[in-house]
Design a protein around this nucleic acid. Structure first.
Length: 316
DNA sequence: TCGTGTCAAGATCTT
DNA sequence: AAGATCTTGACACGA
């Protein structure tokens, strides 16, 4: 079976490939006049999109089949500014180019809205802002021509003093999401509150796929992985399952991401998935991005029963 | 060129 | 009720 690997946001093998350039509101305010502000935002956005294109090309050349777009592609995408900021129309051609390349290269692209997006918040304003943010992601995917199999990964949200109620509120609020957004959402277990077991149950009920984060499961464990994996795999009815992998920075702080990934944090998991004989994908969350991915594959290929198919794919 | 403080957005813990 | 902390990468500013 094949296991493909990918990385998040920027390629460190490319120089200056940031796709998350931005400006703070205060510094934007320092620029006098509407037109210069508008120009500044257009220039930043243009650079982010240009670098995204560079990275997609790089992924194509390096045979990398998995990539996560940054959520910071468009500065102030959902913030009310003093002028109209219609980035979808302005960069229509650029979005199309990126989307076409993603499809030509057959790259599995996703995005992961930031932590301000909290679907289960009891605060209606936070919920409606979350909807706006999710719609922003949906709209840029649409502008790229990426259909609903291109997913948005998110968490259940906050605890708010009552686990049961907060999960119930997630389900209720999920049903209130616009259709386009809802059909893209996949859910991930987090490192503090909602365990893989709990997220799985929600995924089964709502019929949405589940991304298992191995590192979060280590920080916030519940249930037996061997029993959970087949059920998690079953939530992916149309596509190959996906997991997230990272390594803790040090023993003290389990939750911080390290520069690279320890191969050993994955080998046990690989052996558990083997009998299911189903291809899946692994998103690397490490500071060293694509470099960490290549190093992990090299380290894994040292193991007896692991071979490489291409630069970012292994066979077990 | 490098180090430090700041930033649109939330949640949670501490006071 | 208000403030500190979490977490994050990038920018602005000053040394």
């Amino acid at each position: 079976m094949d296991i493909r690997f990918g990385y998040v946001a920027i390629a460190l093998n490319l120089s200056n490939s940031s796709t998350s350039k931005t400006i703070t509101l205060k510094n934007l305010a320092k620029i006098g006049g509407t037109e210069p502000k508008f120009t500044k935002l257009r220039r930043i956005t243009s650079e982010n999109l240009e670098n995204t294109l560079r990275i997609i090309r790089y992924n194509m050349e390096e045979q990398i089949h998995l990539y996560r777009l940054t959520s910071k592609l468009i500065p102030f995408a959902t913030y009310p500014l003093e002028f109209e900021w219609n980035y979808i129309d302005i960069f229509k051609k650029e979005f199309e180019m990126i989307g076409n390349l993603i499809k030509t290269a057959k790259i599995r692209v996703s995005a992961h809205p930031d932590h301000y997006t909290v679907i289960n918040s009891p605060n209606e304003k936070v919920f409606s802002d979350s909807v706006k943010d999710l719609e922003y992601h949906d709209h840029i995917f649409n502008a790229m021509g990426l259909e609903e199999q291109y997913k948005l990964v998110t968490h259940l949200g906050g605890f708010y003093g009552d686990r049961e109620q907060s999960i119930a509120r997630f389900k209720k609020n999920f049903s209130r999401l616009p259709h386009g957004v809802k059909s893209r959402i996949v859910l991930e277990n987090d490192d503090k509150i909602y365990t893989a077991e709990e997220v799985l149950e929600v995924c089964q009920e709502l019929k949405v796929p589940m991304v298992l984060d191995l590192h979060h499961h280590t920080c916030n464990p519940k249930g037996d992985l061997e029993e959970l994996i087949p059920k998690i795999w079953d939530t992916w009815t149309d596509f190959r399952p996906k997991i997230h992998v990272s390594s803790p920075k040090d023993q003290k702080s389990c939750r911080h991401h390290a520069d690279y990934i320890e191969a050993s944090s994955l080998t046990n998991f690989l052996s558990l998935t083997k009998k299911l004989n189903r291809d899946f994908d692994v998103m690397i969350e490490a500071k060293m991005k694509d470099k960490a991915m290549f190093k992990l594959i090299k380290d894994l290929s040292e193991y007896d029963d692991i071979t490489t198919i291409d630069q970012s794919t292994i066979k077990i």
